[in-house]
């Protein structure tokens, strides 16, 4: 196999990297069905962005040199005090148009980028999920719309951390 990583779809690359051929055999049924569904997305997992410890570095890896401007059109719903840092329900919604992605970052987590959602045409710019927060920290939502970045930030207090025992 002398094809480089880049020429592989994200999915196949992940399969090969993660577990090698053994996993492909072990998991038997999957190679046909799953990668096709994933490949249809034709988008690559932003591996570098998820390796960055620091929030600024993660944003840079994810969006290139662009910076986000705070916007009150980005609304986020997150608790004042998280009941448990292991499961913090948070959601984001925006009135901006032409939204292509919504990302969640936690500045004090060991890895700042938590999740990044791609919003194709026809999908509403609104997402809810449950995330981990290691300690009290800022939660930032970044909305990408019309090629520009907009953000909202809120502090969430965490008394039981989500990364330890």
């Amino acid at each position: 196999m002398n094809i480089t990583d880049r020429e592989f779809s994200a999915t196949r690359r992940l399969v090969l990297k993660g577990a090698g051929v053994a996993a492909l055999i072990g998991l038997g049924v999957l190679p046909l069905d799953v990668p096709q569904a994933l490949a249809a997305a034709n988008d690559k997992y932003p591996e570098e962005a998820f390796k960055q410890k620091n929030e600024a570095d993660a944003i840079k890896a994810l969006y290139g040199g662009r910076t986000a401007e705070p916007s009150d059109q980005v609304k986020m719903d997150a608790p004042e005090i998280a009941e448990n840092g292991a499961v913090v329900p948070v959601s984001a919604i925006t009135t901006l148009t032409g939204v292509t992605s919504i990302s969640f970052l936690v500045s004090e987590n060991p890895v700042a980028l938590v999740a990044s959602y791609r919003i194709p045409d026809g999908t509403l710019p609104s997402v809810s999920n449950r995330i981990k927060m290691a300690k009290t920290s800022n939660l930032t939502v970044i909305v990408e719309a019309g090629g520009k970045l907009y953000s909202a930030t809120k502090e969430v207090k965490v008394t039981v951390g989500g990364c330890g025992g």
């Binding site: 608790p79 004042e80 009941e83 913090v88």
Partner: peptide
């Protein structure tokens, strides 16, 4: 505040 997290 907890009640809302629970509903979610």
């Amino acid at each position: 505040d907890l009640h809302r997290q629970w509903e979610e």
